[in-house]
């Protein structure tokens, strides 16, 4: 579902996630250490990596709730896969 870059960036912002624990779509980001300031950094990192800009309406707690919610928003912003 996701790609390795996404997972790598995400793990960098989840200090409570052990390296050997897999990410699943239901993994709760807040529970794994993503705080409100971490969201700002994560957002910047993802936008930089994928060359996209999150629209204002996507900047909600819900977007940053789980791995799956974040990926689906990000995936929707990316140009159609080639």
């Amino acid at each position: 579902m996701t790609d390795p870059q996404f997972e790598e960036i995400l793990r960098g912002h989840l200090p409570f996630l052990p390296a050997d624990e897999p990410l699943t779509p239901d993994t709760n980001l807040t529970d794994h250490g993503l705080d409100s300031l971490g969201i700002v950094d994560l957002l910047t990192a993802l936008e930089g990596q994928y060359g996209v800009a999150f629209v204002d309406d996507a900047l909600t707690r819900e977007t940053f709730e789980t791995v799956g919610s974040l990926w689906s928003v990000l995936d929707g912003l990316r140009p159609a896969a080639v």
Partner: peptide, 30 residues
Amino acid sequence: EPEVRLLRQLRSTGATVFPAVPSLATALVK
């Protein structure tokens, strides 16, 4: 709302003064 909305909130309220602490100011810069 999460901090990630901070700038949007500043714009939508038309804020002219923002009392910040370092973590908020840092988020705003980003």
